[in-house]
Design a protein around this nucleic acid. Structure first.
Length: 956
RNA sequence: GCAGGGGUUGCCAAGCUUGGUCAACGGCGCUGGGUUUAGGUCCCAGUCCUCAGUGGUUCGCAGGUUCAAAUCCUGCCCCCUGCACCA
């Protein structure tokens, strides 16, 4: 046995335990109302081939937490699946002339095998792939449910079209007018599309954001995205017409400053107003210019605000005053009403516009109460006191009062309506692509658009489709077997809907499916969902890139499904952790500010010819700076990779890949391994360090549990994988421990190694003689310190400090001494110092006022009356109770350990003498002399500076 | 412009919510020593300045509060992320 366990051989033990876990089905968990649950979830991967470092990081964090919670007695749900619909598979199929189904499964099988090699503790029974009909059937079922609830709408609207992806996109999926996936420019197109009415939940989505434990930036992004603003729709009657222009504003308090009205060029009224007039030509020019440009370019050139007068006037509903109507290139048709009441006095943009076109500027708010507004050459946009109102009853009102007064006046006169606007739009979820969930509707010439009856689900994607590179459009549309069907209502000939769902739909409820993944009667059972999802997924880990899209959709789904009666929970994720990126060194040109491919390492910059330096950049294929997890596992083992990932940085911080760091972590694993072996083989019957080592174990365990409970993985691992090794080694150097203590230490330590490096922990646990796997073990997390622990730990720290201080003086001492040093002389504090310090601590704890009563107390002390020591006593007292210069008095700085030592009358001389041999070894000095100051020669005058716990140290 | 997050001793990075035990955890790098046939591994020590030690100057910059500030307050500078002529 000895030979097999002496060497750390990760390949062997990792395979062994992965198999044992699988055979024992130890990670399978079911609803158990008697146990507290912990639902740990990672954003499931899109199966794009191999597992990459980003995945490794994400899942290493999750797996450690899942294992930690199991160890603590929780019933843990920890599932894994694949977000396997989507375009890359379809595009890959086109390239190789295959079917996305096959491409997808090849990738899934590859990723699954990678996941298993890392030893992640998933309940594999629950594995799912969204491209399976067993999953997407429920997508369709839910869609029909939403349809019943009135949340589904098919309507023709201008939508975002991506040419390259050959499909429409949701608003959330367009960044800077570019497709989030392929970065191709998106253009607007009118199409009949399917929408989910997410706006019906806008308020709840925004308001409940306050109650969930999301990172602040994610919350801010969602808040921003929903973009709720309170205001009022105001009707400006067209002069000489019956029609009105409805404008939305959040600043009704500025209504008396309106000097013109601006319409979006796309506003239908523009056309009506100018048609056949002298203003038509200039309007058309503007409108066409705007239409020609993509929205992106339009935004970019909007520094140049442009507008044209439309030749007509509208009247201010509160004053009857006529103001000109303009069309402006900066007014967005899709926000609010597409019309803006312009107040140049209090809106900088309107101000600039008014200056340019010579429109009057009127200030109707004052910055200071009771004063006239200042003329500053720019708009005052803050809240102020109303002035110059062309109507009684408004001047002097401020802020919300002012706004409310105006809204009330408008409402009572039927000229306006208080309202709330959102930036959030309904979710456009239809896609003109093959590899997605078919939308379960049928088009019938007679009956219109008819839902597929639930008993006919799933509407399956055909497998007999040939994909080719030159193909364009959706192959579903040309698959007659799929398209041709009969109408469920009238039985007549009908056609299937060929649009499929956005893949974000699939991931919007997969966490609920995981709660009851094998269910073939329903998407999930309510009891299971409510058990596992109570208060949401307890820990959800994934990338920040889904802050708005996935996380918003999932929140919407959970609420909508709740209203459908499928579950009780309202928020899917109670604690969200966005793990940081994994970066790696990349060639970098400082002058050009570009990161370059690793192949260019050592060459000059291809653009400017400068020498390249290195910089950390996100691992990416295009830079070639990726590191293959597979290779690393092969080289160092999964446990080392996991340790590196967890110890390298806190979950939310970015981390840099480093070859030397992973090697150092591998060394650490070996150090742990050999310490464990040494511990297991220890047969000593005596042990000087028993008490100390076990006290350390208790303290480490308490700290570790605290850190791990709060996802402080880096700190947790530092304790379990670093400090505890050092403690073990220190105990060995200081005289070793007995078999009993070693065994006890290992029984505390090995389980602590388990969350981060489970294979090694299981192996050692078994060698230790335990029969039950750690995977099946619950350990006591309520370990507390023993009463004597502070003293035990304090003494050892005292020794270390004495040695440290001796070392730091050594060099200086050498300079003052001729010849080699031969002895270190340690003078501990005089008895009276110990006594005074003890009293001072007690007095401090009793709340004694040292400033007032300090010197009076001193005078009662015997050693104070002795003229020869009086000065020293004074000085000492000051150091102890008030400190000197920047350093506080010792009574304040001593911790629990020090206080305990001083108060229990710790005998420093006896302790140091007993350890003289160790000290002389550590300091590599022949002789160690210890005595109380005054009881031996006062070498180098150190007796005076000796303090309790800080003996005077001299060299000779 | 708006919003969110940051700037800590060579690098990475704790701590700052609940001011004092913070010259400030830990890792990397570097230096020295030991172990080893050698290299590697491993172990020990050092790594702001000064000094036979309880001293000085540090935690983006400048002020302020306090007996006491990396930690609280004010202003400024810089960096990152998201949104953006949103009325």
């Amino acid at each position: 046995m000895r030979d097999t366990v002496m060497e750390y051989n990760p390949a062997t033990i990792e395979a062994k335990w992965q198999e044992a876990w699988g055979e024992g089905a130890v990670f399978e968990s079911d609803v158990d109302q008697s146990k507290p649950k912990f639902y740990c979830l990672e954003m499931f991967p899109y199966p794009s081939g191999k597992m990459h470092m980003g995945h490794v990081r994400n899942y290493s964090i999750g797996d450690s937490m899942a294992r930690f919670r199991r160890l603590s007695g929780f019933n843990v749900l920890y599932p894994m699946g694949y977000d396997s619909f989507g375009m890359p598979a379809e595009n890959a199929a086109k390239k190789i002339g295959g079917h996305p189904h096959d491409v997808t499964w090849e990738n899934i099988n590859s990723i699954r095998s990678d996941l298993q090699k890392m030893g992640f503790s998933y309940d594999w029974r629950r594995e799912l792939a969204t491209s399976d009909a067993t999953y997407y059937k429920w997508n369709q079922w839910i869609f029909l449910k939403f349809h019943e609830m009135g949340l589904v709408e098919r309507r023709t609207a201008p939508v975002n079209w991506c040419e390259k992806c050959d499909t429409v996109l949701a608003n959330e999926q367009v960044k800077n007018n570019r497709c989030w996936r392929c970065a191709d420019e998106v253009r607007q197109k009118d199409m009949a599309q399917w929408f989910l009415k997410m706006t019906a939940y806008a308020d709840e989505l925004l308001d409940s954001l306050e109650d969930i434990d999301f990172p602040e930036n994610v919350r801010a992004m969602q808040r921003n995205w929903i973009g709720r603003s309170h205001g009022v729709d105001i009707d400006f009657p067209l002069v000489g017409e019956k029609e009105v222009i409805r404008a939305f504003t959040t600043r009704p308090d500025t209504i008396f400053g309106v000097t013109f009205v601006t319409l979006a060029p796309e506003h239908p009224l523009c056309e009506t107003l100018v048609s056949g007039t002298e203003y038509e030509a200039s309007y058309r020019e503007l409108a066409e210019e705007c239409a020609r440009m993509s929205e992106f370019d339009r935004v970019n050139m909007l520094r140049d605000k442009k507008g044209v007068f439309l030749g007509r006037y509208a009247s201010n509903p509160l004053t009857g005053e006529d103001v000109p109507i303009y069309a402006g290139n900066f007014v967005v048709a899709s926000y609010g009403t597409g019309a803006v009441m312009a107040v140049p006095g209090h809106d900088q943009r309107d101000f600039d516009f008014a200056k340019k076109y010579d429109i009057p500027i009127r200030q109707v708010l004052s910055e200071e109460q009771g004063k006239e507004p200042k003329v500053t050459g720019r708009a005052f946009e803050g809240l102020g006191w109303m002035v110059n109102s062309n109507r009684d009853g408004f001047d002097g009102l401020y802020g919300d009062d002012a706004k409310q007064a105006v809204i009330q006046a408008l409402e009572s006169e039927g000229m306006g309506q208080g309202t709330t606007q959102y930036r959030l739009k309904d979710w456009l979820l239809s896609r003109q692509r093959f590899w997605g969930t078919p939308i379960p509707f049928i088009h019938c010439d007679d009956c219109g658009v008819v839902p597929v009856p639930t008993e006919d689900l799933p509407v399956e994607l055909p497998l007999d489709v040939v994909f080719t590179e030159d193909q364009s459009g959706n192959p579903l549309a040309s698959h007659t077997g799929f398209v041709n069907t009969s109408c469920p209502k009238c039985g007549g000939k009908a056609m299937r809907e060929t649009d499929t769902m956005d893949t974000f739909y699939d991931s919007s409820w997969y966490f609920l499916r995981f709660a009851d993944a094998m269910n073939n009667q329903a998407p999930f059972d309510k009891i299971s969902a409510d058990y596992w999802m109570k208060d949401g997924v307890d820990l959800y880990i994934g990338g920040i890139e889904h802050a708005v899209m996935h996380l918003l959709y999932a929140r919407f789904f959970t609420k909508a499904l709740r209203d459908a009666g499928l579950n009780d929970v309202s928020e899917p994720f109670s604690r969200l952790v966005c793990q940081g990126m994994v970066n790696a060194p990349t060639p970098y040109c400082a002058s050009c500010n570009v990161e370059l491919h690793v192949d260019l390492e050592g060459s000059p910059c291809p653009t400017c010819g400068d020498a390249l330096t290195f910089r950390s950049a996100k691992m990416s294929k295009s830079l070639g700076n990726t590191v293959s997890p597979e290779l690393m596992i092969e080289k160092f083992g999964a446990d080392t990779v996991r340790l590196f990932i967890l110890f390298g940085a806190n979950p939310e911080a970015g981390m840099d890949w480093s070859d030397s760091a992973i090697e150092s972590n591998y060394r650490q694993m070996r150090a742990i391994h050999s310490a464990l072996i040494q511990g297991i083989e220890n047969n000593s019957t005596t042990g000087n360090m028993d008490e100390w080592l076990l006290a350390r174990a208790r303290k480490s365990h308490i700290d570790w549990n605290g850190q791990m409970s709060n996802i402080g993985l880096r700190e947790g691992v530092m304790i379990s994988h670093f400090e505890m090794v050092s403690d073990w080694q220190w105990a060995q150097r200081r005289g070793g421990v007995s078999r009993t203590a070693a065994q006890s230490y290992l029984r505390t330590w090995i389980p602590m190694l388990y969350p981060a490096t489970p294979h090694l922990a299981e192996e050692m646990w078994q060698i230790l003689g335990e029969e039950e796997m750690l995977a099946n073990t619950v350990i006591d997390m309520t370990i507390t310190a023993h009463e004597n622990d502070p003293i035990t730990l304090g003494q050892e720290e005292y020794l270390r400090r004495v040695i440290d201080r001796a070392r730091s003086v050594r060099e200086l001492a050498q300079r003052h001494t001729e010849g080699a040093l031969s002895a270190v002389i340690i003078q501990t504090a005089q008895v009276w110092k110990d006594d005074l310090a003890k009293k001072a601590i007690k007095m401090y704890q009793d709340g004694f006022n040292f400033k007032q009563g300090g010197s009076k107390f001193l005078q009662t002390q015997p050693y104070f009356r002795d003229e020869s020591t009086k000065g020293e006593v004074m000085q000492f007292w000051k150091i102890v109770v008030s400190g000197q210069k920047k350093r506080r008095g010792r009574i304040y700085t001593w911790g629990e350990q020090e206080n305990n030592l001083v108060q229990t009358g710790f005998d420093e001389v006896a302790f140091l003498s007993a350890n003289a041999e160790f000290i002389s070894g550590a300091l590599e000095i022949g002789s160690v002399e210890v005595y109380r100051a005054g009881e031996g020669e006062d070498v180098a005058g150190k007796s005076r500076s000796s303090l309790p716990l800080e003996p005077g140290i001299a060299w000779r």
